[in-house]
């Protein structure tokens, strides 16, 4: 089973080997309401933890996504260009935003696991 960690800013990272799949939590998509557009990063961009990496737009608000981990973007979820609603319907599955080759895997240690995040958002 893959390991999912959460940041206090409501991003999640799901670890698959050395690669982290990043998106926003189910809780976060509920708070934002209907997502109408996701501005994706470019593949190849090198990120430090905390860098602004994407923008998630609802009709009436735009929220910047800060990368919860450092590394290089190796893939982005092109499906969101046609169907941004995936972030609403399947935030932690098909609604992922980008995949990153982690440069510092220990950053995950500071993040919350499922139980801690559930606590955090309740």
């Amino acid at each position: 089973m893959s390991k999912t960690k959460y940041s206090t800013d409501h991003e999640y990272v799901r670890l698959e080997g050395e690669v982290g799949m990043v998106g926003i939590s189910i809780y976060a998509q509920e708070q934002l309401g209907d997502i109408v557009y996701v501005e994706l990063p470019n593949v190849g961009v090198k990120l430090s933890k905390g860098d602004e990496v994407a923008v998630i737009e609802s009709v009436k608000a735009a929220s910047e996504l800060y990368s919860p981990v450092s590394g290089e973007v190796i893939e982005v979820n092109e499906a969101l260009n046609d169907d941004p609603a995936l972030v609403n319907t399947d935030a932690q599955g098909n609604g992922w935003i980008y995949k990153v080759a982690l440069s510092n895997i220990s950053e995950l240690d500071e993040m919350m696991d499922d139980a801690a995040y559930t606590d955090f958002t309740s």
């Binding site: 109408v36 737009e57 009709v59 735009a62």
Partner: peptide
Amino acid sequence: LTLSTREQHIRREK
């Protein structure tokens, strides 16, 4: 009116 996230009343300095 649509795509207003491009505009100042939503994005302010962005």
